[in-house]
């Protein structure tokens, strides 16, 4: 009888869909909760209402439409001064005190001390050299969360005048031109033109963390999992993406697939998002 249970159990395991397996792998990588308690922060970054809808993501196969529910997104990235307020209120996230598993050695690298950012850094420039864990903690401290990859990409479809500008050749070109410029992260936020949703700086300053940044490529085996055999690497790239000419999106997914949650990078920051029950037309 025991033997039968064993068999049934194995059968069940096999019956599990790939998606569940993928999710499990992801859960291993990113803890759902941070173990320490956070002091809440009174930072009220203005948010834009995004009504959501169905969209066809860059990474999907021919059939896959993804539903994005209505949500709020910070209209611009989190700044140096906002992050400074966060580490002052939560010393465990200061450079000298952060646990090694939460950030690599370049965490807040340019800062002069635990509570002083670089002399030449603008207070309203986006904060960079922050890990996914740190970004996540900041978001929790302001009662928000990081946007999901689909939420971020949904907003990123827009140009100044339309919700989905991906078919316009100049849309991708303009983004790539921005991506090719170095040291953009030192400029202040919300100075360039906002997009259709009133959101600033989706492309011109930094790369941004998303809640599930590694869900597309990096599961247990980096070419396996949910999007099996659809690697964006090398030859795989030819068959993966729905819009092959969207090099800008390629570059974002390439960046996301190359990072781990404790990495901190000179041009990688974040903005926050929040659920909303409001459904506007």
């Amino acid at each position: 009888m025991k033997k039968y249970f064993g068999l049934v159990f194995i059968a069940l395991l096999i019956a599990c869909t790939k998606e569940q397996v993928t999710k499990q792998v992801m859960n291993d990588k990113i803890p759902q909760q941070l173990p320490d308690t956070l002091r809440k922060l009174n930072v009220n970054t203005k948010m834009a209402y995004i009504p959501g809808g169905e969209y066809k993501p860059f990474y999907s196969s021919d059939t896959g439409l993804v539903t994005v529910h209505p949500f709020l997104m910070d209209e611009r990235p989190i700044t140096n001064s906002e992050f400074l307020a966060f580490v002052k209120a939560n010393p465990q996230w200061q450079r000298s005190k952060i646990k090694q598993i939460y950030a690599d050695s370049s965490y807040l690298r340019t800062w002069l001390s635990d509570t002083t950012f670089a002399a030449d850094a603008l207070p309203d420039a986006p904060v960079c050299n922050v890990s996914w864990y740190a970004a996540n903690a900041f978001a929790q401290s302001v009662n928000k969360r990081l946007p999901t990859l689909d939420e971020w990409e949904f907003v990123a479809m827009a140009d100044r005048t339309s919700k989905d500008a991906r078919k316009k050749p100049e849309y991708s070109d303009a983004i790539i031109d921005l991506y090719l410029q170095k040291d953009r992260q030192f400029q202040p936020v919300a100075k360039s033109t906002p997009n259709y949703w009133g959101v600033y700086n989706m492309f011109d300053l930094i790369w941004e963390w998303t809640e599930d940044f590694n869900s597309v490529l990096t599961t247990g085996e980096s070419r396996g999992g949910k999007y099996e055999d659809k690697s964006l690497f090398c030859a795989g790239s030819a068959t993966t993406s729905t819009d092959l000419l969207n090099y800008a999106a390629f570059m974002r997914f390439s960046l996301r697939s190359s990072v781990k949650a404790h990495y901190t990078i000179a041009n990688l920051g974040f903005r926050c998002a929040r659920d909303t029950m409001i459904v506007k037309k």
Binding site: S222, R223, F233, S257, S258, Y263, A266
Partner: peptide, 14 residues
Amino acid sequence: PGGGAEATTAAPGQ
């Protein structure tokens, strides 16, 4: 695999 491509993918600074 990949001639080393996967094994060597490095984010900026890594």
